[in-house]
């Protein structure tokens, strides 16, 4: 199986939206590769004709009637926001200028 390079670690950190220091990236490169080595044992298990298991109880397509239900009060939802204005969450610029 694959080995993670420093570039791979940086790429995955970006995908995961984790801003990591150089120290962290270096440490993770070693730790993640050590953990990936533990995964190698799975390659020896024949699974060509085995169906995957995503969950273990046989419940499917649990639906409820399409009837409006009361939801949480907007004030309760906004109460935890780090920044808000009126009935809105304040978000840093998404479509802004970037260097």
């Amino acid at each position: 199986m694959a080995t993670l390079s420093r570039d791979d670690v940086e790429h995955v950190a970006h995908l995961a939206r984790l801003g990591l220091s150089d120290d962290e990236l270096a440490r993770l490169e070693g730790q993640l590769n050590h953990i990936l080595e533990q995964y190698e044992i799975l390659a020896s298990v024949p699974t060509d004709h085995i169906a995957p298991t995503a969950q273990t109880i046989e419940l499917e397509n649990i639906l409820r009637d399409d009837i409006a239900q009361p939801s949480m009060d907007a004030e309760a939802v906004l109460a935890n926001a780090p920044a808000r204005e009126g009935a809105f969450f304040v978000v840093p610029a998404i479509l802004g200028e970037r260097d």
């Binding site: 694959a2 799975l42 298990v45 699974t47 085995i50 995957p52 298991t53």
Partner: peptide, 12 residues
């Protein structure tokens, strides 16, 4: 190689 494989081994 990882997630799907693990789900299959989970079946076993």
């Amino acid at each position: 190689a990882y997630y799907l494989k693990a789900q299959k081994v989970r079946t076993l």
